[in-house]
């Protein structure tokens, strides 16, 4: 039986798909609770407390509420695209998890061009946001969609330049080989100043922008756009967009861990007794905490400030980083 399953390519593809889908769909449960708790404590209030111990069951209550809400499709909307858009946002993030190696032997697919795949697929999720904004037949939603498109294109360039530095250090596009190049303690990780600290900084800022989170959540902009691209969405379709935002944040954190934080390697070789996937999870959780910490500490950028930061600061810095990295690799 087991030989049959392992030998049959189609069944293996199905099993792997189920694992990736399962990861993405189970993410919002812990994330919404943690996010609201962190928000509460940063603002000196307890956060959700009523449902379960310290509100741990709150995500289930929220999920039930969203599930029971009416699914409203606005008059004059493009019905097909309006229905499909939330799924288009979510599916690329499911596809990303296929390529991320959690430990040396725990990955769903070992691709030669893993880094490029992850960046390219992550960029596709923007179609759901743009089309959701357009199909709503609402000016706020359309403006949100257009902003999302412009923001995504600007910051994807910056992120690409940041990642080129890592690729040059590892001499490979394979995610697993990139992690292996960072083996041997915390000093070998790409986040160290003598490695790719500037690249990590660009990656982090571009990551905030790509996951549409504060300080770069102008596609939603509830202050001026009343919710942006998801203004007209309600019920389950709205929660799919929220789920996609968490999946985006999580995938950026996982990619950042692989590229800059040494993936499954322990900070010191002596700590390798603890299995790699536990280190990976610890690092991703710390990374996620930074995302949430920033969300409740910074105000939102203005649109022109966002564009200026992307094109006039991050991209030149990224190009300089590639040149300096190349120079050091040549000289070493």
């Amino acid at each position: 039986m087991i030989e049959f399953v392992l030998g049959n390519a189609l069944i293996m593809i199905l099993i792997k798909s189920f694992i990736a889908v399962g990861i993405v769909f189970s993410l919002p449960l812990p994330f919404t609770w943690i996010e609201r708790k962190i928000a509460g404590h940063i603002q000196v209030r307890p956060g959700p407390m009523r449902v379960g111990f310290h509100g741990v069951l709150q995500p289930f209550a929220d999920g039930l509420k969203l599930f029971l809400k009416e699914d409203i499709i606005p008059d004059g909307a493009d019905k097909f695209l309006f229905r499909v858009a939330p799924y288009l946002t979510l599916i690329p993030y499911i596809a990303i998890f296929v390529a991320i190696p959690v430990a040396g032997n725990a990955y769903l697919s070992d691709m030669n061009v893993g880094v490029l795949y992850v960046l390219a697929i992550g960029g596709l999720s923007i179609y759901g946001i743009i089309l959701g904004g357009w199909a709503s037949n609402s000016k706020y939603a359309l403006l949100g969609g257009l902003r999302a498109a412009a923001q995504m294109i600007s910051y994807e360039v910056a992120m690409g330049f940041a990642v080129i530095g890592v690729i040059m250090m590892a001499q490979s596009l394979n995610m697993r080989e990139i992690v292996e190049a960072q083996g041997g303690g915390i000093l070998s990780w790409n986040i160290m100043p003598h490695k790719q600290l500037i690249g990590f900084y660009i990656f982090l800022v571009a990551g905030f922008a790509e996951s549409n989170r504060i300080p770069f959540d102008i596609p939603e902009g509830e202050g001026e756009l009343g919710g942006g691209f998801h203004t007209e969405y309600s019920g389950m379709r709205f929660s799919l967009f929220a789920m996609a935002e968490y999946a985006a944040m999580f995938s950026i954190c996982a990619i950042g861990t692989v590229l800059y934080l040494g993936g499954w390697h322990a900070p010191h070789p002596a700590l390798d007794v603890i299995p790699g996937f536990i280190w990976f999870i610890i690092k991703v959780v710390c990374f996620v905490y930074i995302f949430m910490w920033v969300r409740f500490s910074w105000p939102r950028y203005r649109y022109d400030q966002l564009m200026a930061l992307g094109w006039k600061f991050l991209i030149p810095l990224g190009v300089a980083n590639v040149l300096v990295t190349g120079l050091f690799i040549m000289l070493w």
Partner: peptide, 25 residues
């Protein structure tokens, strides 16, 4: 040729078509 496939995805699907949509909107 996975590299060409990903490049196609990156450049055409990921960037150029977003500009197309932008103009069409």
């Amino acid at each position: 040729s996975p590299f060409l496939g990903i490049a196609q995805l990156f450049i055409y699907v990921g960037a150029i078509m977003i500009f197309f949509l932008f103009a069409v909107f």
